[in-house]
Design a protein around this nucleic acid. Structure first.
Length: 203
DNA sequence: AACCAGATCCTCT
DNA sequence: GAGGATCTGGTTT
């Protein structure tokens, strides 16, 4: 994976990340997923972004250089992973919402639970984190030169199979078409409108 | 110091 | 399809 691939606005990088491979190595073993669903988040201009109100200790990684992993805790117990994109100093990142496990399925299932169907092992951002074994320790990790979390090239997804839609579960700017996913792919998570989304924001 | 909202997930009907 | 669990970080008093 080349830094030039990531050093662009999140909404440009997000569709290009479909098909790329995210790998996580721990003492337990290695799990890799081919990314099937992403969402772009920007900085000051994006009301739904963690970085909208400026830099804080929690979102600092988003403001750093492209190619690092931004990890945050959602609803108390889910670890969600983002690939930082764009320019150093300007917040932007791509949330990895879903992927297909292509390596280490046994370990992924051990982490997720024996009953989980294969396509659901990394379906949804919280599940991606759990299947890969991503925790707060991974925040800020360099995806290009690191050895514990890595982003690499995979089979490109044909443009004709890429779909665009509104982001899942955000209450602000929920009509922004910043979600990208593979058409007809069982590993892609279901769309849900945030309970707090304002009807007046409809276009 | 207190409040509240949240880039979610799982279970149950 | 709907509802609740769960707790952290950010914002407001």
């Amino acid at each position: 994976m080349n830094i030039d691939f990531l050093a662009h606005p999140a909404e440009e990088v997000a569709p290009k990340l479909l098909g790329t491979v995210l790998t996580r190595k721990t003492s337990e073993g290695t799990v890799s997923i081919a990314i099937t669903e992403t969402e772009a988040y920007s900085g000051m201009a994006d009301p739904a972004s963690h970085a909208y109100r400026g830099r804080t200790a929690r979102n600092a990684t988003m403001f750093g250089p492209a190619g690092h992993l931004y990890v945050y805790r959602s609803h108390g117990l889910h670890w969600c992973a983002n690939v930082v994109t764009g320019t150093d100093g300007i917040a932007s990142g791509v949330l990895i919402r879903a992927g297909r496990v292509i390596e280490g399925e046994e370990l992924a299932r051990k982490r997720r639970g024996a009953k989980v169907e294969s396509p659901r092992l990394a379906r949804g951002p919280g599940n991606v984190g759990q299947a890969l074994g991503i925790t707060a320790e991974c925040n800020g990790a360099d995806l290009l030169t690191g050895t514990s979390v890595m982003l690499s090239e995979g089979e490109p997804v044909p443009a004709a199979l890429i779909r665009v839609g509104p982001r899942v579960g955000v209450s602000k700017a929920h009509d922004w078409q910043h979600r990208f996913y593979r058409a007809d792919d069982p590993t892609v998570s279901a769309y849900r409108l945030s309970p707090r989304a304002k009807p007046s924001a409809e276009a």
